[in-house]
């Protein structure tokens, strides 16, 4: 079954407490190569048939209307997952 991937991230100007907590912990476990962490969310929408432009448009609408909260989050990508196998 084809899938559409939606990635949602907190808006850059919005505090991301989750990312902050993880970023603070990384150096404590010896991983010092990172200056920041932001934590977003990934959704996988399964499609029955082909991923047409229309289905993608619906996914974009779902992302804007339901999957993200436009007050504090951005939809950063809506894309078809490349076939596995």
């Amino acid at each position: 079954m084809p899938r559409i991937i939606v990635d949602v991230m907190p808006k850059p100007e919005i505090l991301d407490p989750q990312g902050k907590a993880i970023a603070n912990e990384l150096p404590r476990i010896g991983l010092t190569g990172f200056t920041g962490v932001r934590q977003g969310r990934r959704f996988e929408l399964t499609v029955a048939g082909e991923v047409t432009d229309e289905v993608l448009a619906q996914a974009r609408e779902a992302a804007e209307k339901l999957l993200s909260n436009p007050v504090i989050e951005d939809v950063v990508s809506v894309s078809e997952l490349a076939e596995e196998n």
Binding site: P17, Q18, A21, I22, E25, I29, Q39
Partner: peptide
């Protein structure tokens, strides 16, 4: 602990 932000208990265990 640590707000449970990553997973509950995930950071405290370190």
């Amino acid at each position: 602990s640590y707000g449970d932000y990553l997973r509950a208990g995930a950071i405290a265990r370190f």
